[in-house]
Amino acid sequence: MENVVELKNVAKKFKGFAVENINLEIKQGFVTGFMGENGAGKSTTIKMILNLLQPDAGEVKVFGLDYHSHEKAIKERIGFVYDGNVFFEGLNLKDIKRIVAPAYKRWDDDLFYKYIEQFELPLNKAIKTFSKGMQMKASLAIALSHHAELIILDEPTAGLDPIFRRELLDLLQELMVDGNRSIFFSTHITSDLDRIADYLAFIHKGELIFNQSVHEVAENYALVKGKLDLLDRDTEKAFVHIRRASTGFEALTDNSSEVKKTFGDRVVIERASLEDIMYYLKGGIHLG
């Protein structure tokens, strides 16, 4: 399977914050969800994928090419949607198109107008008069109109109402009918991922915790409940994080088959939702 994006041992340091040792692969032809709480390093990672930030160490490859010698070729093939509006807010969509379109060799005017119609966007109104949802649709229309192979969205659903969030996710799914296309989007809303992601990457405090298919995540991660006397220094190693109460423990494991082997029927094993995983991982990474 081909990777559209490969990050190898990537690190970037800021004052008071760092992402370290990021090894991330984004598979071609799939939707990869990039999850993590606010401030975990999602935007930093995305900016490095887009060369808005240059890593202090490590290697970033997009479509197998590096930015050093293929910057333009890479960006021709990427469509981007950011959290906030990056387009000149005083301009209307028609003028923004006049600025953005000539930058791309494969810009498709018909496609652009098709999306404008589909999203019901006004062409002659300044972007700043748009609602958050409309701004998102406008960015998306621009991102989709040059036949991009990789679409990168940074928190596209943040601040959108639930109905529109669903519409957006449906739309992203439609885009995937084209088998070559890949989508990478970051979010801290886990229900978005349940709906459309094929792969999940989870970042926590600047560190990539996992990068697996949805299937693997469901298989490996589980919530385990049982009596406190089952826990000792050895058995605890199977868990990522344990919450103890007088009535018993509840823990997250990233190796549910191992837990089954160790504890058998003495514990209850439940499917861990993405929210569970985020919640427990936030509680602290177990060093075992």
Binding site: L52, E71, K72, A73, K75, V86, F88, A103, Y104
Partner: peptide, 18 residues
């Protein structure tokens, strides 16, 4: 007045320009 805004630089640098 436009170009010193961070958003403009993010836009320009995300487009296929060096």
């Amino acid at each position: 007045a436009y170009d010193e805004k961070a958003e403009t630089n993010i836009l320009l640098n995300s487009l296929p320009y060096t």
